[in-house]
Write a protein that binds this DNA or RNA. Structure first.
Lengths: 194, 194, 194, 194
DNA sequence: AATGAATGAGTATTCATTCAT
DNA sequence: AATGAATGAATACTCATTCAT
């Protein structure tokens, strides 16, 4: 399995650094190879092409992202609590990884439509985690039983994503994680705050 | 004033079509010129460079977008009503303009960071419209007085944007405008639906 | 006769200024037109094309250059004296016209081979003045009767031209005209200075 | 050291041929690459940009030019003899290399001012060879002790250059090398031929 | 497995010239 | 005579990918 070979992750980590520091359009394969300490051609022993590096990067990172969130959620009882932990952990993980925050929120979005659709596919694993929480909340009666799960998921993800992007664009000047409870309350209660 | 010259809008409209149909990275100046029915060089009588076409495109379209939403909102009394109209009109306008929907939700996001920051600047006008509604709602007591305006705005915009993008990615298979009331209810009342 | 029309010289004078101040390759027709205070299209009522402006420029300026030198030489008796006056006047006229010095020594040499051959043709009038002095000197016995007129003319012109070019490249920091007697002595007596 | 790689000189030699045969402004990079038998992109592995090819071309060729002249001069005793050999070798080397003659006398002068000043810099090595001869001649008493070295050098170079250019413009119809003794005598003795 | 030299397709922009008014 | 908006041909350079070693 190629993922076991040390150079596989070495190249992916190099890609994150190069993209974060140079921007998507300045992240040439040669630069990634240099950062990874391998020859240009070596890249192609581990990845089909440049796009494959980016997809794999997203898959690997998003995979462990979802794993960590799953772990954190596991112990929580109510759906509301789980949602809070999801928002908190999402904010926390990106706060801790400056490079990944830039790459996911800004740089990877410059990829072409096709690549973005494949990235969206990877994202589905995360969206399912959100869906599960919503469905659980509806079933336990915590959330309104009339909720449209897809719409709610889009509200949750859209809100979180917009806030994180804004935080990155503002050069991460404020404490993102601290916002989690307020965001959670907004999502649960809406404007009314009933 | 350059905007009065017919070829100015002619080129911008051509750019929208070419970008929507070919994708951002396949939207060569020559293609835009051909679509607009002018010579390549004529483009440069009206725009400084290619980037200037894209900025101008966004300014012109976003300008009339905000204008139309402002008009629709004008007659409404409550902040909640205004918010509904905003969501409705936002959905409506993009539903009516297939090409612009693709361009704003998918293609223009592939532009480089600098261009995107300039686009964000144009977007501010729209965000201020949202802010005004929120502030009005707080002042009239419709909305909770503890709301963090920025966060709320990010929830509103992030939610709308995510829904529209998802609609475009799904090839506009469902009726977007019809979702407005449900989205509005979600934003106002949250999951609880009190 | 087109040369009588005021705009003809107006455009030529504008070309000298534009070329001197912007360089040959930055001297666009539009810039010359603007400097001359006419529309771009008007240029083509007086000149066949851009090259024709440059040829005409050189013809007009070189014409009056030769005329003035002829006048100065007229009164002199010996060939040696005439040669001194020629060098002196050549230096003097270019010292007085900063723009023309730059245009003739640096900028016009960047034109293509064909244009340069046509310019060389115009130059022949000047070279004949030199030839006449040499021939007269040989006939009066002032100069060696074994002189190869063409070679001597090339030495005279090559020397003068190299000195003027060097003076322009040095940003005209020294008094060019003051060099004339030394240059004259060198040409007449060579290194030996017998 | 890049100069050791065979393709470096291969490209430079191709550039000389392409420029000589097509003219400076028709010497596209693609043409040079084709003539050199390499891909367009390969050019940029050896040269920073097109201008760098031209500078390097001049440096390499002028370097060996000066070397050869230095070698020829080495065995000669008097300054006058050395001057003769310099003129002779200068004429000889350009007679032997039709392409370089065209390139140095006609084509390279069409480059822009900045490139020309960098070329002038390379030329300084040659001018110093001339200077050394003049200074030596003054010190040994062969030449007048009142000579202005810079002026004399300009006379020598200006004369040689003008003669060679004229020879190239006349399509090299006469024997250039055979002129050396006459040119030498002219420079040494001037018109008087004492 | 690893290398890195070589490849070659692809594109924004300028500017001399024209011609309808 | 004069205008100036419109034209469209022409070109250096980058970088993902390959393949001989």
């Amino acid at each position: 399995m190629k993922k076991m070979k040390p150079k596989y992750m070495q190249i992916i980590d190099a890609a994150v650094i190069v993209i974060a520091e140079n921007g998507y359009h300045q992240a040439q394969v040669a630069k990634i190879a240099k950062q990874a300490g391998v020859a240009d051609g070596t890249i192609y022993l581990y990845f089909k092409n440049k796009e494959d590096i980016l997809i794999s990067l997203f898959e690997e990172k998003m995979g462990s992202f979802v794993e960590k969130i799953d772990e954190e959620i596991a112990g929580k009882k109510t759906a509301a609590e789980k949602l809070l932990v999801l928002v908190e952990t999402h904010f926390q993980l990106l706060s801790e990884d400056h490079h990944m925050a830039i790459v996911t929120q800004l740089e990877l979005r410059q990829s072409n439509k096709e690549l973005r659709m494949r990235i969206n596919n990877v994202l589905k694993g995360y969206l399912q985690v959100i869906d599960k929480i919503i469905i659980e909340g509806i079933e336990t009666g915590e959330f309104s039983e009339t909720l449209d799960v897809r719409l709610v998921r889009q509200m949750v993800f859209g809100t979180i994503d917009e806030i994180v992007t804004s935080w990155v664009l503002n050069e991460e000047k404020f404490n993102l994680t601290a916002l989690a409870p307020k965001v959670h309350r907004l999502l649960i209660n809406g404007f009314a705050g009933c």
